[in-house]
């Protein structure tokens, strides 16, 4: 839990958000390459070091009572990276997935994947992804969505296509009906996005779902990101005044997440 410093009065009236804990947190795990470059290591070492951060954040979110955690692991654009790096990354993902499958399951974490359509994904990894999804599908304590081979625009285009294919009249297309066509329609909107390494871009990540999200940009590189940083980000979020495009409020102040 975030340290209680007596500032509970700034809680925001969001469903599932009663204790100031965001219901849905998403992380853009940025900075692996720079982390490795700073140490004169090959880029793959940065990805390898990222595993510890991922597990730490999952554990922290689980403990804090976050209901939905989404991690941006691999974008549709990432396929353009050098083939050797992509291969290394895919191998690391598979190894980590197998290594942690049982502990995720015993913690009651439901694991899902967003994307995973490219035929370049090796069948063995696709099989493991399907197995992890199957194994954990009845868990309810927390839902972990791993955006893998994901592109926010592609999801939106796919949803539009399915509406057109089914001949839905234009006047019946609403934000709600559109959202139901997106992958994992039961996934709530994102409350907080954490993008590490100080980069301040959306990078085609869950475009529809982050419409009203708060963003924090800690400067720490992802492989160094730990539970403490995660809690600081939750604290930053707690201090924010979420307006959802409504009434003006005083400009944001207070300590930002590093």
């Amino acid at each position: 839990m975030a340290a209680n410093d007596g500032s509970d009065h700034v809680l925001l009236p969001e469903a599932g958000d009663v204790r100031g804990v965001p219901h849905h947190v998403a992380c853009v795990m940025d900075g692996n390459g720079r982390w490795a470059a700073q140490r004169s290591l090959p880029r793959v070492e940065g990805h390898r070091a990222a595993e510890t951060a991922v597990i730490d954040v999952i554990e922290a979110a689980h403990t804090a009572g976050v209901g939905w955690l989404s991690l941006y692991a691999f974008s549709t654009e990432n396929w353009r990276r050098p083939a050797a790096e992509v291969d290394d990354l895919l191998r690391l993902v598979r190894r980590a997935l197998r290594k942690h499958a049982l502990s995720l399951h015993t913690r009651g974490i439901r694991c899902r994947f967003l994307g995973v359509t490219d035929p370049r994904i090796p069948p063995a990894l696709a099989r493991d992804i399907a197995d992890l999804t199957t194994l954990t599908r009845d868990n309810r304590r927390m839902t972990l969505t791993v955006a893998f081979d994901h592109g926010g625009r592609r999801d939106i285009v796919e949803a539009a296509r399915s509406l057109i294919r089914d001949g839905v009249p234009p006047e019946q297309v609403t934000e709600e009906s559109f959202a139901r066509r997106l992958p994992h329609p039961d996934m709530p909107e994102v409350d907080l996005v954490i993008r590490t390494s100080g980069e301040q871009r959306i990078s085609n990540f869950m475009l529809w779902q982050v419409a009203y999200a708060e963003w924090v940009f800690p400067r720490v590189l992802w492989p160094d990101f730990r539970a403490g940083h995660f809690w600081e980000c939750l604290e930053t979020y707690r201090r924010r005044d979420r307006r959802f495009g409504g009434v003006q409020a005083p400009a944001l102040t207070g300590k930002e997440c590093r």
Binding site: R95, L102, R120, P122, D131, L132, R137
Partner: peptide, 23 residues
């Protein structure tokens, strides 16, 4: 299905890319 998934996940897999690893 869950038992089968668990069995496959926890038993050692072929880490190296075998022929079947290719599309």
């Amino acid at each position: 299905a869950k038992a089968g998934a668990l069995l496959r996940l926890i038993t050692p897999g072929q880490e190296t890319a075998a022929a079947g690893d290719s599309a």
